[in-house]
Protein backbone atom coordinates (compact mmCIF):
# COMPACT_ATOMS: atom_id res chain seq x y z
CA UNK A 1 0.00 0.00 0.00
CA UNK A 2 1.52 3.23 -1.14
CA UNK A 3 1.92 6.37 0.93
CA UNK A 4 0.82 9.58 -0.74
CA UNK A 5 1.36 13.10 0.57
CA UNK A 6 -1.75 15.22 0.85
CA UNK A 7 -0.63 18.88 0.92
CA UNK A 8 -3.21 19.49 3.62
CA UNK A 9 -3.06 16.31 5.77
CA UNK A 10 0.41 14.89 5.21
CA UNK A 11 1.35 11.26 4.37
CA UNK A 12 -1.71 8.99 4.17
CA UNK A 13 -2.54 5.52 2.77
CA UNK A 14 -3.33 5.38 -0.93
CA UNK A 15 -6.83 4.05 -0.20
CA UNK A 16 -7.84 7.51 1.00
CA UNK A 17 -7.16 9.00 -2.41
CA UNK A 18 -8.87 9.02 -5.79
CA UNK A 19 -7.18 9.46 -9.14
CA UNK A 20 -8.13 12.64 -10.96
CA UNK A 21 -6.41 12.25 -14.31
CA UNK A 22 -3.25 13.50 -15.95
CA UNK A 23 -2.13 16.93 -14.79
CA UNK A 24 -1.80 19.67 -17.37
CA UNK A 25 -4.78 18.59 -19.45
CA UNK A 26 -6.03 22.15 -19.76
CA UNK A 27 -9.61 22.66 -20.84
CA UNK A 28 -9.81 24.39 -24.21
CA UNK A 29 -12.70 26.85 -23.91
CA UNK A 30 -14.66 28.02 -26.91
CA UNK A 31 -15.41 26.58 -30.34
CA UNK A 32 -12.32 24.43 -30.75
CA UNK A 33 -12.04 21.82 -33.52
CA UNK A 34 -13.54 18.42 -32.72
CA UNK A 35 -10.09 16.78 -32.70
CA UNK A 36 -8.82 19.20 -30.07
CA UNK A 37 -11.89 18.58 -27.92
CA UNK A 38 -11.53 14.82 -28.32
CA UNK A 39 -7.90 15.10 -27.21
CA UNK A 40 -9.03 16.88 -24.08
CA UNK A 41 -11.72 14.29 -23.37
CA UNK A 42 -9.91 11.08 -24.20
CA UNK A 43 -6.19 11.31 -25.09
CA UNK A 44 -3.52 10.92 -22.40
CA UNK A 45 0.25 10.69 -22.55
CA UNK A 46 0.65 7.86 -20.02
CA UNK A 47 4.47 8.06 -19.81
CA UNK A 48 6.66 5.33 -18.38
CA UNK A 49 8.63 6.91 -15.57
CA UNK A 50 8.07 10.36 -14.04
CA UNK A 51 4.44 11.47 -14.26
CA UNK A 52 2.36 14.41 -13.03
CA UNK A 53 -1.15 13.49 -12.01
CA UNK A 54 -4.12 15.11 -10.31
CA UNK A 55 -5.26 13.26 -7.19
CA UNK A 56 -7.89 14.10 -4.56
CA UNK A 57 -7.67 13.20 -0.90
CA UNK A 58 -11.17 11.96 -0.10
CA UNK A 59 -10.90 12.74 3.60
CA UNK A 60 -10.36 16.48 3.22
CA UNK A 61 -11.37 17.14 -0.39
CA UNK A 62 -7.99 18.54 -1.36
CA UNK A 63 -7.23 18.25 -5.08
CA UNK A 64 -3.52 18.39 -5.86
CA UNK A 65 -0.84 17.52 -8.39
CA UNK A 66 1.36 14.60 -7.39
CA UNK A 67 4.68 13.89 -9.04
CA UNK A 68 5.59 10.23 -8.97
CA UNK A 69 7.24 7.50 -10.99
CA UNK A 70 4.85 5.14 -12.76
CA UNK A 71 7.45 2.35 -12.80
CA UNK A 72 9.14 2.49 -9.39
CA UNK A 73 6.10 4.03 -7.62
CA UNK A 74 8.38 6.50 -5.82
CA UNK A 75 6.52 9.66 -4.87
CA UNK A 76 8.49 12.85 -5.36
CA UNK A 77 6.16 15.71 -4.54
CA UNK A 78 2.65 17.11 -4.09
CA UNK A 79 1.45 20.61 -4.99
CA UNK A 80 -1.89 22.20 -4.20
CA UNK A 81 -4.02 23.23 -7.16
CA UNK A 82 -4.15 26.99 -7.23
CA UNK A 83 -6.79 27.76 -9.78
CA UNK A 84 -3.94 28.36 -12.21
CA UNK A 85 -5.76 26.36 -14.85
CA UNK A 86 -8.47 28.99 -15.01
Amino acid sequence: MQLFNCPFCGPRDETEFHFGGEAGNLRPDGDVPAERWADYLYMRHNPKGPVREVWVHGNCGEFFVMERDSVSHTVSGSTTLGGEHA
Binding site: H18, G20, R27, V56, T80, G83, H85, A86
Partner: peptide
Amino acid sequence: VHARLEEWRQDRFGRDA
Protein backbone atom coordinates in the same frame (compact mmCIF):
# COMPACT_ATOMS: atom_id res chain seq x y z
CA VAL B 1 -21.45 16.07 -7.48
CA HIS B 2 -19.66 17.47 -4.46
CA ALA B 3 -16.33 16.16 -5.76
CA ARG B 4 -16.93 17.67 -9.19
CA LEU B 5 -17.85 21.05 -7.71
CA GLU B 6 -14.70 21.00 -5.59
CA GLU B 7 -12.51 20.09 -8.53
CA TRP B 8 -13.77 23.00 -10.66
CA ARG B 9 -13.47 25.25 -7.65
CA GLN B 10 -9.85 24.31 -6.94
CA ASP B 11 -8.70 23.87 -10.52
CA ARG B 12 -10.44 26.67 -12.41
CA PHE B 13 -12.06 29.29 -10.19
CA GLY B 14 -9.79 29.44 -7.15
CA ARG B 15 -10.46 28.99 -3.46
CA ASP B 16 -11.33 32.62 -2.80
CA ALA B 17 -13.82 32.81 -5.64
